[in-house]
Nucleic acid binder design. Sequence first.
DNA 1: CTAAAGTGCAACCGGACGGTTGCTCTTTGA
DNA 2: TCAAAGAGCAACCGTCCGGTTGCACTTTAG
Lengths: 105, 105
Amino acid sequence: MPVDAVFAALADPTRRRMVETLAGGSTVTASGLAAELPITRQAVAKHLAALRRARLVNTKRVGRETRYSLDAEPLGDAARWIATVGAEWDERLADLGRLLDRQSA
Amino acid sequence: MPVDAVFAALADPTRRRMVETLAGGSTVTASGLAAELPITRQAVAKHLAALRRARLVNTKRVGRETRYSLDAEPLGDAARWIATVGAEWDERLADLGRLLDRQSA
DNA sequence: CTAAAGTGCAACCGGACGGTTGCTCTTTGA
DNA sequence: TCAAAGAGCAACCGTCCGGTTGCACTTTAG
């Protein structure tokens, strides 16, 4: 299941911060990203690999640097799962509400 | 950050399946859940503990059994994060964000 | 009263994870 | 041309995770 990798990727705060940075539409390199974070460039590269595993990020080699950009489509899959489960929950609440209305009348 | 625990909880397929089961509104015990899964009762208990850490599940002790029920509210937090970062990318995610804002108001 | 059911706690195991250091390779710019 | 920049690969370390077994405790049912 690809949604596994998406939720796993989003579970790490460093990775979420990276996604937030990329959300503006900017492309970034591992070294550039590491300059703004308290971790090593290699650690950043590992996080970016996890995001790439979740298809949340695209890579493009330009000369000696690798530029990463966001692909938000897998986010839709995760959101869809949440919305589905939540819909059943809301349906249950709707049922409970109708029951209470009937009993109070 | 509580959203850490939510995404981490949803990253495991067994845990997502449990949430789907609970989404119907039913309450369940660790033993009852283990009967339908290919894992031990103790493993189920650990998964339920992870869901409880994410506030996705409520516990209620009744006699000798512990009954678990779903609390979908933290799902809204996760969905809201996704909708925020993905709003510029996907109009559907923007719609989800507006929906969540309306429901929380 | 006693045995079974349901739970909780603790220890253990293999593997994945976050992070580091060290090295090599390619590309670029002065 | 040659050193610096950017990246990739590999090994290592401590910790967490999913899962198991074993045991003790409480509650229920016959």
